[in-house]
Amino acid sequence: MAKHNELGKEGEKIAVEYLVKTGYKILETNYRYIKAEVDIIAQKEAVLVAVEVKTRSSNYFEDPQDAVKAKKIKLLVSAIDYYVSQRDLDVEVRFDIIAILHQKNKIEIEHLEDAFLYF
């Protein structure tokens, strides 16, 4: 597996651990719908949360969260729409980004709730 793929998988693992510690219930990981993949689908109280995880070893070019572009947002929204309708869920939906900067032995986690409001 390519080094950047390994970093991404490690970041998703860190994000799941972080979410569990902060009171989220993990419902799905790596949920796929057509061309979309939602890294984590979680629930906290009555809110369904779709989480995009971005992990980088450096923020030299851009912060991890800045890598989530309009096309990715559109795919995530369609995947969650399908997920909710297939399960006939009546829940509030929120889209978060967990940005992880993994440099040397230091890990920084930034959890952006309702992240797509800022795009």
Rank of each mutant, 00 (worst) to 15 (best):
D114A: 08
A46F: 12
E28T: 07
A42R: 02
D63R: 11
E113P: 01
K44H: 11
D39Q: 02
V38A: 09
L117P: 00
D39P: 00
V77F: 06
Q43K: 14
N30D: 10
E6M: 14
E12V: 11
S78E: 15
H4T: 14
K44R: 14
Y18C: 06
E108D: 14
R32H: 13
Y83P: 02
G11E: 04
A46H: 15
Y82W: 13
V91P: 01
L7E: 02
I41Y: 05
F61T: 08
N5Q: 15
I98P: 00
A36Q: 04
I100P: 00
I107D: 09
D39K: 00
I40G: 02
D66P: 07
G23H: 08
D90L: 13
I98Y: 01
A46C: 14
V53C: 03
V91A: 10
K3G: 03
V20E: 09
K25N: 12
V38K: 03
K35F: 04
D81C: 12
V91K: 08
I80K: 02
I41F: 10
L48I: 07
K106W: 08
E45Y: 15
K13C: 13
L117D: 06
F95T: 04
E108K: 13
G8H: 03
A79D: 05
K13G: 12
Q103L: 14
E12G: 05
L112R: 02
I73S: 01
K54G: 01
D63S: 10
A99Q: 02
A115F: 04
D63W: 11
V49I: 11
H4P: 03
F61W: 13
L101E: 06
K54P: 01
L112V: 11
I14W: 03
H102W: 10
I98E: 00
N30S: 13
L19E: 00
E113L: 06
A50C: 09
Y31N: 07
S57A: 15
K69D: 11
I34F: 12
E10R: 14
R56T: 11
M1G: 12
E28H: 03
E28N: 07
L27A: 07
H111C: 07
Y24S: 06
N5S: 12
V49W: 00
F119N: 07
E62R: 12
L7R: 08
K3C: 04
I109R: 07
V91I: 09
S85F: 13
L27C: 07
R87C: 09
E52G: 00
E92Y: 13
I40Q: 01
H111L: 05
G8M: 01
I98G: 00
I34H: 09
T29E: 10
L75V: 10
E28Q: 09
D96N: 09
V53M: 02
I80L: 13
V77Q: 05
Y33E: 11
V77H: 01
E110D: 08
